[in-house]
Every structure is written in C-alpha cells, then in structure tokens.
C-alpha cells in the first residue's frame, strides 16, 4: 500500500509520514512544556517554600512562553575561538536524537509511529547519540569548563549506559520480544504466579531491574544527584558555558524532551505502557486509541515527577562516587538480575 485516504485526501507515504512527524513532534513538545511548568517551576517552588512564577498568566502558567520569547530575541554569540560548524551542529544532534526515541513508543493499539521489531534496542541506541552532541558541544566551545563538562558527560554515559541496557535485558527476557507493542501486550496479558487480575507490570516482577533502570536514567539525563556535566558551582555551567540565546534553549528543550522520552520508555517497559491489565478491558477496542495516550501520559508524568522529585531532593555526588556506584554496584547487580530472570523464566 503506497497511498491511503487521510481526511479525503490521497496522500503518498512520505507525505503521510511528514504529517505524522509534525503531529508527534507537537504531541512531544506539549508534555515537555508541561513538565517544565509543573515540575521545574511549581513543584520545586513548593519544595523550597517559595511562590515560583506568578506574574505571567494565571498562576504563572504563561511563564514558559515568556521564557521562550526572551531566549528567541537574545543575540546569537559564537566565541571566536570556537569550532563554528561543530558548535552549531551540537544542539541539533542533541535535540533531534532525543525526539527520535519517541517514534518507537506505542501510544495505543494502532498509535505507533514506527513499529520496529527491535524497538527498545533502537530507542537505547539513538538516545545515547545525544551524549555525543554534548561532547561535541564541550569540545567545540574551546573553553576549559566546557571541555571538562563534555568529558564528564562522556564518562557518565559510559558508566550508566551499561546498567541501563542490562536492566532492559531482564524485561526483554520476560517479555520474549524487543518490540515495544509486544512488551506492552506481554504485561497486559501476563500473570504473576497464576494471578492475572493486574496482568504482570514489570515494576513488580522486575523490581530490581526497575530500580537499576531509574537510577541509570537519572544519570543518563544528568539530573541531580548526577549533574556533574553541568555542576554550576565547579564548572560554571559545564558544556553549556559558551551557549546563549536560542542555542541554549535548544539544549534546554532537549533536556526536558529527554526526561519525557525516558519517562515514556520507563512507563512502557515497566508500567504497562498505554494499556491497562487485559483482565479489566478489551484492549483491541478502538477506544484505546483515544484512552491509550492519556494513560501513557499519566504514567509518564508519574515517572517524570519522580525524576524531578529526586533531582530537587538530593545533593550532587562527586565524580569518583558516580563511577564507583555504576561499576561496583549497579553493573554487578544487573548481571545478577539477568541470571535470576533467566533461571526463573526457564524454570516456570
């Protein structure tokens, strides 16, 4: 099938794809904006006993638009010593790869952009490219703070990429597929030792994997307590030091889109994604194309809120503590998790 009818218009495949891409980009930027307002502006203000933004719109809800307006009209400064091409490419590399992770996340029975058989593998592979963008930004700035920040980001990726991937292996073993829709179905139809009333959400059956995954996500996203690449009290703002105006805004969008992306992936892998347990409702019902995105969004907000909650609660680790936690605790634990899951899977 090379063309199909959309709203009475005959559209070729690539035209459809472009329309759907624009649709999903808007759908992604909306929750990212909500994250910023709800968690970064309001929750942190509440946690730190202050009001937060109040002036722009009711309860300061238009603050985000005001901030974007501010950044867009700032002068574009590229330091003269910087590697100009790389300096300009770096933000694109970060943001576009973060957005790419969304396309394998299923939002409903038919609401999936690209139903890859290697879905989760694709998402993990693409999401790690964005750290390359961070390293490029640090190097291209020709600034010592930036370079240190970029190198720290690379070291952090190296250390926490492994627990992240190995924690996902547990889920893949249990679901028997890397396809994201397949993982959702496996959780909705699963059972825990013969009890199928709530399906088999993997944050219960893969609890260790879930904990490792969330710690690794916190580090991959460079959120406090793992924010050494930015570390404003030691490195000015790390790899962001020389960026200003709209290019800084792109990094900022990338950061929050990444929280949303990992929130969606964590919700899909461990919390049943867009589905509810199959014992509760018929999941092939068309209504789930409408309800699915809302259910996923709710779970995503839960995970995102948790990430920000930790961010504003914990003090920053030292760089050596970060490496030590990954290599001597998380990686051995995730290997044990894989072996335990294997034995349980084969035995039952």
């Amino acid at each position: 099938m090379t063309s199909s009818l959309v709203l009475g218009l005959e559209l070729a495949y690539w035209q459809q794809s472009i329309l759907r891409s624009l649709g999903i980009l808007l759908a992604v930027l909306l929750p990212a904006g909500t994250f910023v307002y709800l968690f970064l502006f309001k929750m942190v203000s509440f946690m730190q006993s202050r009001l937060g933004p109040m002036e722009a719109g009711p309860f300061g809800s238009m603050q985000l638009l005001a901030e974007v307006g501010k950044w867009i009209q700032k002068e574009d400064i590229i330091p003269e010593k910087a590697d100009r091409l790389l300096f300009k490419i770096a933000p694109y590399l970060v943001v576009s790869t973060v957005l790419l992770t969304y396309i394998v996340v299923p939002f409903g029975p038919d609401m999936i952009f690209a139903n890859h058989d290697t879905g989760i593998f694709f998402a993990l592979a693409v999401s790690s490219i964005s750290t390359l963008g961070v390293l490029a930004a640090g190097w291209a700035s020709a600034n010592k703070f930036s370079l240190m920040g970029g190198l720290r980001a690379a070291g952090q990726l190296i250390a926490y990429e492994l627990p992240l991937i190995l924690a996902v292996v547990g889920v893949v073993i249990q679901a028997g597929t890397m396809n994201m829709s397949g993982i959702v179905a496996a959780q909705a139809n699963g059972e825990i030792f013969g009890f199928d009333g709530i399906g088999s959400p993997y944050f219960i059956t893969q609890f260790l994997g879930f904990v490792i995954f969330m710690i690794a996500v916190q580090a991959e996203l460079a959120q406090t307590p793992f924010d050494m690449p930015i570390a404003e009290s030691e490195l000015v703002t790390g790899y962001l030091t020389e960026y200003s105006g709209i290019r800084f805004l792109l990094f900022f969008i990338g950061e929050f889109a990444a929280v949303g992306a990992f929130g969606a992936i964590a919700a899909t892998l461990f919390m049943g994604g867009w589905a509810v347990p199959a014992a509760w409702a018929d999941l092939n019902n068309n209504i789930f194309n409408l309800l699915g995105p809302l259910i996923l969004m709710a779970k995503m907000t839960l995970v995102g809120g948790f990430i920000f909650f930790i961010r504003f609660t914990m003090p920053r680790f030292r760089e050596d503590q970060l490496q030590k936690l990954a290599w001597t605790v998380l990686i051995p634990l995730s290997l044990v998790n894989i072996l335990a899951t294997t034995i349980l899977k084969v035995a039952f």
Partner: peptide, 20 residues
C-alpha cells in the same frame, strides 16, 4: 520502517531550523 525514521529525523531538524 527505517524510511519513516529518516523522514522523522528530517522533519525534526527542519522544525529546529525554522525556530532558529
């Protein structure tokens, strides 16, 4: 499926270029 990935990447980068 991989063509859709390429198209999506192109649209995403295009959108960023428009913002810039």
């Amino acid at each position: 499926d991989y063509l859709t990935v390429a198209i999506f990447a192109a649209v995403a980068i295009g959108l960023l270029l428009v913002v810039l």
